[in-house]
Design a protein around this nucleic acid. Sequence first.
DNA 1: AATCATGATTTGCG
DNA 2: CGCAAATCATGATT
Length: 457
Amino acid sequence: MDETHIMQSLVGVTLSRAVHGGMALAPSLDHQGSEDDGRKQDIGDILHQIMGITDQSLDEAQAKKHGLNCHRMKPALFSVLCEIKEKTGLSIRGVHEDEAPDPQLMRLDNMLLAEGVSGPEKGGGSAAVAAAAAALGGGAENSIEHSDYRAKLAQIRQIYHTELEKYEQACNEFTTHVMNLLREQSRTRPISPKEIECMVGIIHRKFSSIQMQLKQSTCEAVMILRSRFLDARRKRRNFSKQATEVLNEYFYSHLSNPYPTEEAKEELAKKCSITVSQVSNWFGNKRIRYKKNISKFQEEANLYAAKTAVTAAQAVAAAVQNSQDSSSPATPNHGFQLKDEEFQLDTTESKNNLLTSMFTASSGSFSLSSSGDMFMSMPSLNGGSYQRMQPNNTGQPEGENIHGIGQAAGYSEALRGHPLYSPNGLNGNGGWHEAATPSSVTSPAEAAGSIHSDTSN
DNA sequence: AATCATGATTTGCG
DNA sequence: CGCAAATCATGATT
């Protein structure tokens, strides 16, 4: 509106100046199409005419202007204009000196900074990417997505900066032009420096609103990019083998109560480089799918139970130093061969210590309330935190104690197949294990027995 | 391409 | 809010 008007006059001024200053327009158009002389002649004629008109009108305008400036009534007119202006008092009207920070703009700025779009060239960006990666879970396997994400982010950043610079430049240019124009006009009408300042302020505000739009759309683009890359559902990745291993180990060793506490979830999440909610998801899925048909998971259960058992057995062996048994030379892992994986005893140390103390303290039966969870709770260093009694399974702990040997019952819960329960799940009351498989499990039962005897003696 | 496996989400309950 | 169950959606396998 106003600006366009100003712009037009501004263009007029600059053009007239350029022409008046002796800049020839002809040369730039002269050297094209040199083959057709007649036509060139025509063009030349037209050009001459145009130039003539321009010169003429310019001179005319200039003369008029000069005449006006030199008119004897001019000072009087000027003073009248000043008076009117002062009376109407529209000189410094609506000057927003307060420079409102605009919370929304601040928000956008902060976000862009956090996303690494603005701010330091690479540092912030990679940090944001790293955070995104952490949220996504998984360590090294999704580095491809990282680079993809980073590339796209860099692209956005590039566009953002280019546009921002363009706006900045355009703003400055325009401001300069307007200021020149106003200064020029101040000779014929009263314009105070304050007014020029005000005008500049208006221009800046206009441009900053455009900038905000840019920031807004950039933010939007980043959000879309983020959601696209972080929406795990769209790009589902299987957990790493090791993570599944850890989770399964926990699950099967806590089969009687596979509900990890918040702390346990955090621990598992850390171990598996996944998020806590992913751990929760995993256990949710696992529980439901295990329960749905246990037979399908029997093999897996045996495997992990065996693994735990052997792990424990090894630990026990190490602790006891084959001092007291020797009564059962049968090979400990007879019934279940560990397939291929080796299990890391990263916490063997603590386990050994604990087992040692257990054994040295008492060789009899341990009346630990939830011995079933014992062996897995050991490595977690915070011992009892995993033990959460399920109100429904009232019969369980005692049952294990009936067994007499806490350790054996502990790590071979799955192996035993819960012989103490009625086959078809005595608890239809909604508790875990209402459909526990009967002792069908079994084949490794002897193995459990062997270990049992191993350790108990 | 069918099918299964599996992680994530939605829905409904207490 | 945490869970179970149903469901969706994608990855892997055949």
